[in-house]
Design a protein around this nucleic acid. Structure first.
Length: 446
DNA sequence: GGCAGTTACAC
RNA sequence: GUUGUGUAACUGCC
């Protein structure tokens, strides 16, 4: 099948998804039909009337309210907005229709990110502006999402990191072992406005909508006493920002795919996976060129090529650590959802009745849920398990504690804590990292 | 099946 | 002081 035919097929598939999540107060059957059929010359002319429907504004407000977010520069909280909800919404609608609407500045807040001491600059719009942005997103998201690359997974409805990771695993299995791991330097803050707007204009003609987007990009930033107008970037914390971020990088996805590269992208974090070192290097060169031409810069330290044919090579992606270890390990997949309940019941019944209390017995019962057990130290074993209810877990702990007194060195790990990393349903597992996390404190004591 | 509430992860 | 998008899991109720 040609690349073109595949593309059309994927578009159809995605349409079915979109149908399910598109906001019904905007996306009527007629509109959806138009979305599927494709619009004249691929551009949408009248959208602002959909944005300004009362239903849409109300729905948007409910979404903003349910997020329980903080106030913006005007100090109006969601509670205060709600106390005069009818009035506020009516005023907002009026302003939008008159073209008098103007977004307020965003409130700058720094939040610590990850484990480093760096802070992430946040721009919090006012509640009122969050409502408008949500309403706007409901209108434009399906228009762009339907043609997004199927290899872009970040910030997209019904797609999550697991989908991206599944693809990574699939490609590794197929022998794509040269992995270009790229990171764009402060991506959100460096997206050029002009170029971004021209991407938006490829699909939307409606001037009111375009003005609105531009106004959100140009909204002032208030940081304490200072305030300024940003000349680049989209505010982190803005509701449409993630969507805009995807719109800007979408041509890159398609370009790399057309060039024959396998890309896996999650927002600004992406991998290009290749079967040879040479082609990985070519991918890197091509990526650098595209980023430069589009006003973006790759992070010099975080961007590199990992050769996964080498023993101790690794790369990190979406919180998972991919590594080829010396002792290749047996990995059990997570239990399937349907079988999980059955399994739980069996375990509960068995552990309640049984007085044998032998570790081996329990392992036998848990086998379907056992991720793996590993010799990490001369006399110790780690039992890793998941999908077990509170009662069973407590019982197991006491059993293991008893067992420990006799033989020592047995520990149980609750894998739910490590959902983030290191235990995966993908066939990768780094024992060293688990050791680090679980036994750090133990080690420091001795 | 549905609905609500929470936590936890990615960016 | 903590915004946003998305996903997942848990709990409760009918």
């Amino acid at each position: 099948m040609s690349e073109m035919a595949k593309q059309i097929l994927r578009r159809d598939e995605r349409f079915v998804e979109i149908q399910a999540w598109a906001s019904p107060s905007v996306w009527t059957d007629q509109m959806l039909k138009t979305l599927h059929r494709g619009v004249e010359r691929g551009k949408w002319y009248s959208l602002s009337d959909k944005l300004m429907r009362k239903n849409n504004i109300m729905e948007a407000w409910e979404k903003v309210c349910s997020n329980k977010g903080s106030h913006g520069v005007d100090m109006i909280s969601t509670e205060r907005y709600e106390s005069e909800l009818e009035h506020n919404n009516a005023k907002l609608l009026e302003e939008l229709q008159d073209g008098r609407y103007d977004p307020r500045a965003v409130r700058r807040v720094g939040i610590p990110k990850g484990d480093g001491r760096k802070t992430r600059p946040l721009g919090i719009p006012t509640v009122r502006d969050r409502v408008v942005q949500t309403a706007l997103k409901h209108v434009i998201e399906p228009i762009f999402d339907i043609d997004f690359s199927p290899y872009s997974f970040g910030f997209r409805p019904k797609l999550g990191c697991k989908d991206a990771l599944r693809r990574v695993n699939e490609l590794l299995k197929q022998g794509y072992l040269y992995v270009m791991d790229a990171d764009i330097q402060s991506y959100f803050d460096t997206i050029p406005h002009e170029k971004l707007m021209s991407r938006v204009k490829e699909k939307i003609i409606d001037g009111k909508i375009l003005d609105l987007i531009e106004q959100f990009l140009k909204a002032n930033i208030f940081d304490g006493l200072k305030h300024w107008e940003p000349e680049e970037g989209t505010p982190q914390g803005g509701i449409i920002s993630p969507l805009l971020a995807n719109i800007y990088l979408d041509p890159f996805d398609h370009k790399m795919t057309e060039a024959g590269f396998e890309i896996v992208r999650y927002a600004d974090d992406f991998l290009i996976m290749c079967k040879s070192k040479e082609s990985a290097k070519r991918a890197l060169r091509k990526t650098r060129r595209w980023m430069k031409a589009n006003g973006l810069k790759l992070h010099p330290e975080k961007t590199r090529i990992a050769d996964m044919t080498e023993k101790c090579e690794y790369f990190e992606f979406l919180g998972y650590h991919f590594e080829r270890t010396r002792n290749t390990h047996r990995i059990k997949r997570w239990p399937r959802k349907q079988s999980l309940k059955k399994c739980k019941d069996a375990i509960r019944k068995k552990t309640r009745r049984s007085n044998k209390d032998s570790i081996e017995d329990i392992i036998a019962y848990l086998r379907p849920n056992l991720v793996g057990w590993y010799q990490y130290f001369k006399h110790s074993t780690v039992y890793a398990m998941r999908g077990i209810d509170e009662f069973t877990r407590r019982r197991l702990r006491s059993i293991i504690a008893k067992y420990n007194r006799k033989k020592g060195s047995h520990r149980m790990i609750d894998t739910r804590k490590y959902n983030k990393a290191y235990f995966t349903d993908l066939g990768f597992f780094s024992l060293e990292e688990v050791w680090k996390l679980e036994f750090q404190s133990l080690r420091s004591k001795h």
